[in-house]
Amino acid sequence: MTLLEGKNLTMVFGGLTALDSVNIHINKGEILGLIGPNGAGKTTLFNLLTGVYSPSRGSIYFKEREIKNLKPYQITRLGIARTFQNIRLFGEMSVLDNVIIGQHCRTRTGVFGAIFRPPAVRDEEKRVKEKAMEILEFVGLAEAAKEKAKNLPYGKQRKLEMARALATEPELILLDEPAAGMNPQETNDLIELIQKVNDMGKTVLLIEHDMKLVMGICQRIVVLDYGKKIADGTPEEVKNDENVLKAYLGAALDKEVK
């Protein structure tokens, strides 16, 4: 079953065509990898799917509903969450509060509720806090709950980005280079974590340069080059695709996979 479908997506910035008539679909429950050389349009595609930009042409359907004119917060409410390539945590807030903020769109307390604190609000706060702790346990950050997000080491900040995205209760989670800057040990932990998220029934779209990670866990891979889709298939198919080899992977791939 198709969870998300982008048809004919084109994005033009001034005279630059960052994406050119890209068709992409994501099946429910899969881990889809999105790869391509720098400047291929991967992050632009992410920004289209999450409503940061509206496509110049084309349309996007999430669960058969057109979402291309929705704002990012509306798309999050529908069930698409994302992490950022350059980490964007709420640095001055605690780790726990970062995850609590993630549940914003699933809670409702307003100004009057906040001031008068009726039982419903207290219950909601308790639930939100428990859920946040659960998520922190899940990603392995429970003991850092009270620290300021900006004081976490880099690898843990990446995990917190993921925890925060999970807190929005997404069906589809978009990860923008989650392994960037991680050491091999951290990358292995991350692979395990992504696998666990997928086992929970969440669909994953992953941008990544780390070939070991992509080839290891993605069931299907889409390759972009200069804003165009040049391949779409299983890791095995993509690895042997002539266009892909020519455009970008080259001989380096074989070496890395082994």
Binding site: T50, V52, K71, P72, Y73, T76, R77, A81, R82, F84, R88, L89, F90, G91, E92, M93, D97, I100, I101, G102, H104, C105, R106, R164, T168
Partner: peptide, 17 residues
């Protein structure tokens, strides 16, 4: 908390719904 999140990073706040 939403107010502070907006101060800290508006785009990320929007991505949190």
């Amino acid at each position: 908390k939403s107010f502070i999140a907006i101060r800290e990073d508006e785009l990320a706040a929007e991505a949190m719904g």
